[in-house]
Each structure stands twice: as structure tokens, then as C-alpha cells.
């Protein structure tokens, strides 16, 4: 089964690389933006997987770092278009700030949250992300509740053009590959061993002399920084920044992606993000189709209620397929996650 698993993952990654070419060939440019969104969510899910899958910290507030990364682009745009500060559109600066600011905020939030354990940790990360959510709603200057429409995107000079969907797609793809490589190196390093060790038996690790709190905190900060990159890409993809993306339901979506794909595996979150967005895109049509097959009335409306299927589906995954997609590829079925 192992070779099948690697083959499948390789196939998915290669297929992702070919998306823009195929989409343009069949004249369906919509697919480029759909798959860009998948890549962006894959990056965010990978960042969450570092703390959730490898570190065993159930962070229920990662949408906040996604939002912070997006607001870096949004606030830069605001000052460039309203105060004439052309330099505020610089893409390299956006990227650098979208890594450092969410990273630092994650360190701050992590420093307080990691003092607690278990359910407290879940609820505190949730509450802090809501705090940032309301903070940005309160910032009327940068759109508040309504968000900001971006007429200018991050400017990378002549290197690439964010208005070009294909450029943005390959930037996201490249960043995803770099992040996957870095995560691979990270989790297989001494640092990663300590992180995984602290998940399975913290007391023993502390007895050996590792300050697990600091290791966890650093992992939390790195995770926030990576999630910020996803936010930067998301703002450029949707050409819109709003607080809606910071809402806690999106933190829940991210957890679902990680678990759906397979926690604590390198490619699991990528599979999970692709699978999640595929379901979001095609489950309504599937329901509509199924409704027509059995000859129901008002099938067009039935598709709108796809979450009524999706919710219980999620519960089934939790109860019966803890390993997620990656676990299924390895032939593991059942509760071992």
C-alpha cells in the first residue's frame, strides 16, 4: 500500500502543477482561481498541521493569522490609494510583513494560551481569534464590517503580476512546495522530534530535560507565520479583504481540512484542503443530481442545502475514519489517527 500512497500523492501534486495549462486548454479559466484557493487553503492547513498534527495542540484560531496576513495586503493597498504612498504596494514587503506580523502575534497569543492544556487551550485560541476578528470590525478606517476591495494588488515589479491568475497560481504552488520542504526538514529535525515527543508524553520529555513550553511556543509562532503567507495569497486571489475570513467558523474549516486529509502527515493537509474545497464545490451538484435521479421536486433548491449532508459526513469521518484520506491510502481504516 505504501507505494500506492506515494504514487497517489505524486499524482495529485503533478496534477496540481498542470492545472493552469489544462484550464486554459479547455477554456475554463474559472478552474485556475478555484485551484489557487485550494493551494492557499493547503498552505494554511499545513501550518495548522504543524501544531495540531505534530504538536498535539488543538488551535481553534488559525483563521486569525490568515486574516492578519490578508490585512497586510489590505492596509498596504489602503495607504497606497488614499495617502498616495506608492511604496505600500510593494509585494516583497507585503510578503515579509505577512510572515512576521502573524508570526509575532502567534508568539504572543501562544505565550498565554500554552500555559493551559486541553479544552482550555481550544477555547482560549478560539477566544483570541474572535478578539482579533472584533478588533478588525472595530477598525472603521480599514473598512470595518464591509471589508476592503483591492483595486491594486501586491506589486512585484516585473517579476510577476498578481492580476494574472496563472502567475498567482504558480506563486502559490511554488510557495506550497517550499513550505512542504521546510516542514519536512523541520519535523524530521531534532526540534520536530521534541515536538512530537511532547505530544505523546510531555512529562517524560520534561524529565529528560526539554523545556517543552518553549518548543511548543516556537512551533506555534512558525505556524502563525506560515498561515500569514496563506493570508497574503488569499487577499491577492480574492482581491478583497474582510473580517469574514477571520470568523471562527473558518478556523473550524481549517481543522476539518487537516483531519479530513490526515493529521500529522506531510501531505495530509494538502489532500484535505483539495478534498474539502472539492466537496464544497461539487457536493451541491451531486445532491442536485442525486435528487433528480430519484425524481424529487425542486432539485435546484436541494443543492443549496449541501451542508445538511456535509455536517453528518464530518461526524462520520470523525467516528469511523480518523486517519483521513492519507490513512485510507495507507490502508488504515478505523479509529487510529
Amino acid at each position: 500500500m505504501a507505494s500506492f500512497r506515494y504514487g497517489f500523492i505524486l499524482l495529485v501534486m503533478l496534477a496540481l502543477a498542470a492545472v493552469p495549462t489544462v484550464a486554459i486548454a479547455i477554456d475554463e479559466p474559472f478552474y485556475v482561481s478555484l485551484f489557487t484557493r485550494m493551494l492557499v487553503m493547503a498552505i494554511a492547513a499545513c501550518s495548522l498541521n504543524l501544531v495540531l498534527g505534530y504538536g498535539g495542540m488543538v488551535s481553534f484560531g488559525h483563521a486569525a493569522y490568515l486574516g492578519l496576513g490578508a490585512y497586510v495586503v489590505g492596509i498596504g493597498f489602503y495607504h497606497a490609494s488614499n495617502d498616495g504612498m506608492e511604496w505600500a504596494l510593494n509585494g516583497w514587503m507585503h510578503l515579509a510583513l505577512a510572515i512576521t506580523i502573524p508570526g509575532l502575534v502567534a508568539l504572543l497569543i501562544g505565550a498565554i494560551s500554552l500555559r493551559t492544556r486541553g479544552v482550555y487551550f481550544i477555547m482560549i485560541t478560539l477566544a483570541f481569534s474572535q478578539m482579533l476578528y472584533y478588533f478588525f470590525i472595530g477598525l472603521e478606517r480599514y473598512g470595518g464590517d464591509d471589508g476592503l476591495s483591492l483595486w491594486f494588488l501586491s506589486d512585484f515589479g516585473g517579476v510577476m503580476d498578481m492580476n494574472d491568475d496563472v502567475d498567482l497560481y504558480y506563486l502559490s504552488y511554488g510557495l506550497l512546495l517550499v513550505i512542504l520542504f521546510l516542514l519536512y526538514r523541520l519535523v524530521n529535525s531534532r526540534f520536530g522530534m521534541v515536538l512530537k515527543g511532547a505530544k505523546s508524553n510531555e512529562r517524560r520529555l520534561m524529565a529528560v530535560g526539554f523545556p517543552t513550553y518553549r518548543y511548543r511556543l516556537v512551533a506555534f509562532g512558525i505556524s502563525g507565520a506560515i498561515c500569514g503567507i496563506a493570508g497574503f495569497l488569499m487577499a491577492n486571489q480574492s482581491e478583497f479583504v474582510s473580517t469574514a475570513e477571520m470568523h471562527w467558523v473558518h478556523s473550524g474549516d481549517l481543522i476539518v481540512m487537516v483531519v479530513l486529509g490526515g493529521m500529522g502527515t506531510l501531505f495530509g493537509p494538502v489532500l484535505g484542503a483539495v478534498g474539502f474545497l472539492m466537496l464544497e464545490q461539487y457536493l451541491p451538484e451531486l445532491i442536485r443530481g442525486g435528487c433528480e435521479v430519484i425524481g424529487g421536486n425542486n432539485c435546484g433548491i436541494a443543492g443549496e442545502y449541501w451542508k445538511i449532508v456535509f455536517g453528518p459526513l464530518l461526524i462520520m469521518v470523525v467516528l469511523f475514519a480518523r486517519g483521513g484520506i492519507d490513512g485510507l491510502l495507507q490502508g488504515k481504516v478505523g479509529r487510529n489517527g
Binding site: 481550544i122 481543522i255 449541501w306 453528518p312 470523525v318 467516528l319 480518523r322
Partner: peptide, 23 residues
């Protein structure tokens, strides 16, 4: 089950209830 499972399953319940109420 561990807390993560509970969080996920009850998150699924929220989606279900929201759609049921909308229906």
C-alpha cells in the same frame, strides 16, 4: 474520544443545525 474528535463532530452538528433551520 479525545477533545479534537468532539470539537469536529459538534462542529459538524452546527453545520447540520444551521442548514436544518434554514430548510
Amino acid at each position: 474520544r479525545d477533545h479534537l474528535d468532539q470539537v469536529l463532530a459538534t462542529f459538524g452538528l452546527i453545520l447540520f443545525f444551521n442548514e436544518l433551520v434554514r430548510l
